[in-house]
Amino acid sequence: MILYGMRPSPFVRKVLFYLEEKGIDFELRPAGLGIGGEEFAKASPFGKFPALVDGDFSISDSSAIVHYLETLYPEPNLIPTEAKARARAVWFDEFADTVLFATGGKIFFNRIVAPKFMKISGDLAAADAAERNELPRLLDYIEGVLPDSGFLIEDRLTLADIAVASPLINLAYCCPPMDSATHPRLCRWLNMLKTRPAFASVLEEERPLIEAMATQPELVL
């Protein structure tokens, strides 16, 4: 099983968390932003990453990939089977991929991806405006829906936690730390997830790139 993509994309990270939590063997190959070659192009005809190749089957899009993995490897169960819980898991996955990423992407792209990877100037005013005007409402929402258990659904780790945590980790790389006074549940939840072995392993693998982002004005893919 081959996963095409690049760290630290939140979509790639979501699938990496999923693979590690499931204990599935895989190979990560760099792809995206002009790299990846013919095999990646076949797996993802529109250049969307991540893309997964499993034998003669290929699929792109992180949500499609995790649903494929969940069907093949149902244990440990990460997508609830009860109707209401399953619907909420799908909602949180969509919220993370669209609503949260729409804001976080403006910040991360303009502060990190554009100047560091694409070697172009980012729109820092747009990033600042998104952090100031859009992000607080999203953090307040997550804070308000987190239950006492510390997990978003069913008092256990699910796709919901994996999906929402992935873009928040990107924001931690380019925004001031979240305030534990105003978002105590959110801070506890994210810190708890980061200590899970699967999460910690993925984050340790991306650490060299994150350190390079902090010290190098440009990065070569």
Rank of each mutant, 00 (worst) to 15 (best):
K119E: 15
K119F: 04
K119D: 15
K119P: 11
I120Y: 12
I120A: 13
G122H: 07
G122T: 07
G122Y: 04
G122L: 01
D123A: 10
D123G: 06
D123E: 02
D123S: 05
D123L: 07
D123P: 00
L124N: 09
L124A: 11
L124K: 10
L124G: 07
A125I: 04
A125F: 01
A125N: 09
A126F: 00
A126Y: 00
A127W: 00
A127P: 00
A127D: 01
A127T: 03
D128A: 15
D128V: 09
D128L: 04
D128C: 09
D128S: 14
D128K: 09
D128H: 03
A129H: 02
A129V: 01
A129R: 02
A130R: 04
A130T: 02
A130H: 01
E131T: 06
E131R: 01
E131I: 04
R132Y: 03
R132S: 05
N133H: 10
E134F: 00
E134N: 10
E134P: 02
L135F: 05
L135R: 08
L135K: 08
L135M: 10
L135D: 07
L135I: 00
P136N: 05
R137E: 14
R137Q: 15
R137F: 15
R137G: 14
L138D: 01
L138F: 04
L139A: 09
L139P: 06
L139N: 11
L139R: 12
D140A: 15
D140K: 15
D140L: 13
D140V: 14
Y141K: 12
Y141C: 12
I142L: 15
I142F: 07
I142H: 12
I142M: 14
E143K: 05
E143Q: 08
G144K: 14
G144D: 08
V145T: 10
V145A: 13
L146H: 05
L146A: 11
L146T: 09
L146P: 00
L146V: 13
L146E: 06
L146M: 12
P147L: 00
P147N: 06
P147E: 06
P147C: 05
P147T: 04
P147W: 03
D148V: 14
D148M: 10
D148A: 15
D148K: 15
D148C: 13
D148S: 15
S149T: 05
G150C: 09
G150W: 05
G150D: 06
G150T: 13
G150Q: 08
F151C: 12
F151G: 07
F151S: 06
F151V: 10
F151T: 08
L152T: 12
L152F: 10
L152M: 10
L152W: 01
L152A: 08
I153N: 09
I153S: 08
I153Y: 09
I153W: 03
I153C: 13
E154V: 13
E154M: 11
D155R: 11
D155M: 03
D155E: 14
R156P: 13
R156K: 07
R156C: 13
R156Y: 04
L157F: 03
L157D: 01
L157Q: 03
T158W: 02
T158V: 06
L159D: 05
L159V: 11
L159Q: 14
